[in-house]
Design a protein around this nucleic acid. Structure first.
Lengths: 249, 249
DNA sequence: CGTACAATTGAAACCAGTCAACCATTGTGG
DNA sequence: CCACAATGGTTGACTGGTTTCAATTGTACG
């Protein structure tokens, strides 16, 4: 029922079969083929890829499955700062530091490719195109966070959810339109943590959107019924933007 | 009355007198001395350094004064995504793109040093230390935004203001303590835009903190009276963190 | 089968937003 | 020089969206 995710070709090091490396596969494809050091890691739901304060050594490209990245506030509460789906790059927030500032856990069975940052840095030094690609990835992360920042700063619950759903949809296959199915691998509480809402509010708001016929919700599956209405709620132009991948990660 | 700002030595290109370049002066000091291309720009309050959709070409280091960076939501509202004080680097959010995704305006009379990004990129290519410094700056921006994200996602008005004030204080001279004076070059509305609050709420909350004797507010000047209480409100440990510069920008 | 977890829904409390009035400061033009 | 408008700030009363607390149902997994 739920949509399969985009799968761009590209072979990364030791992975036998073709795998998706998202931005990386676009930006570094040719050069990545030549990197022999890429390791693969398999995670079950709940497994941590790294923890806050652990040594930072690698970025991770999500091959399949999905992850959440969390941070702790100084007084001990946990908040999700991003969801990472197939093709996304995890770990950019700790570049330049010895230790991770966040933790990453799998939301479901997940496979990632490990990209040692020292290696990327070294290659960036000799290949301008790779250095530029690394800059692009870092600044891309900045912009995704800025989108979330705008969302948290000025939108109401309904609008946040609408934007969240459209973002999830557009990170799947093709543009979000009527009938598009969205798979949400995270709990209501996790959605709330990311959107700055309580789980009850998430549940209530999803129910409301369902009741109004804008979406159809069945557990963690959502189907868009009135794309136009949903975009309107999200404060977006009715016409899909030129470059989708706007929010989250 | 208000505290002077930290002033690290370092000479940047054409600027005759020593100037503060913040992170840059720490990371690139030696190499920057050799760059002849650095231009200086002077802005009056309200002047824009760049606009959304304008060509992205340079980063800007704030020598004196302060700036605000704003973004537009798709439905046209404006939100401030960061304040930049002396020594901060403006423009990182558009690295890797042709056009700026944000606008930057001076909050008061301000002087900035222009750092053409192509130049930095070129130098990063030949000098590993500079490439690493650029990575650090980009990832530093990511982490500052993540702090703001946590703030917007889980704190109440009072807590947001407390954290905002401590951040402003610590970006001044030395640690925030009782008696520390803070200068806020922005309006209540601008503070609210950044913190996800309405200007009335900002005003009311500042008044409340004043009434409780935690701070003293006189127009745009604030003096910390009960540091411990303020940190408590901000959800911070009473003891100042090892590395201050946590939030905002 | 029962425990644990996820999700839904209702009712009441509360925090922040909205609307509005008022004051202080600044700058402009008659 | 004064009048007046524009801007920034403060405060009050009211409204409303979200949170909080609580009860209930459904679902997965041992």
């Amino acid at each position: 029922m739920m949509a399969p995710r985009r799968c761009e070709p590209g072979v990364c090091g030791k992975c036998a079969q073709p795998c998706t490396l998202g931005t990386l596969s676009r930006d570094l494809e040719l050069d990545l083929r030549q990197l022999p050091e890429l390791r693969e890691r398999r995670l079950a739901r709940g497994d941590y890829l790294f923890h806050t304060s652990g040594n930072f050594e690698s970025l991770y490209a999500v091959r399949s499955g999905s992850m959440k990245v969390t941070m702790l506030t100084e007084d001990g509460r946990e908040q999700i700062t991003g969801f990472f789906l197939q093709g996304d790059l995890v770990g950019l927030d700790s570049v330049g530091l010895r230790q991770h500032v966040s933790s990453a856990a799998a939301l479901e069975d997940t496979v990632v490719c490990e990209l040692p940052f020292a290696l990327l840095e070294r290659h960036g030094q000799s290949v301008p195109r790779i250095q530029a690609a690394l800059f692009r990835m870092l600044s891309g992360q900045i912009r995704r966070e800025l989108s979330t920042l705008l969302l948290l700063g000025s939108l109401r619950a309904e609008e946040r959810l609408a934007q969240f759903l459209i973002d999830l949809a557009e990170r799947g296959v093709g543009p979000a339109e009527c009938g598009t199915a969205i798979w949400m691998p995270m709990t209501r509480e996790e959605i709330g943590s990311y959107l700055g809402l309580k789980l009850e509010t998430v549940s209530r708001t999803l129910s409301k959107l369902h009741r109004e016929g804008i979406i159809e919700v069945v557990k963690r599956g959502v189907r868009i019924r009135q794309e136009r209405q949903l975009r309107l709620l999200a404060g977006m132009n009715p016409v899909p933007a030129a470059r989708p991948r706007a929010l989250a990660h």
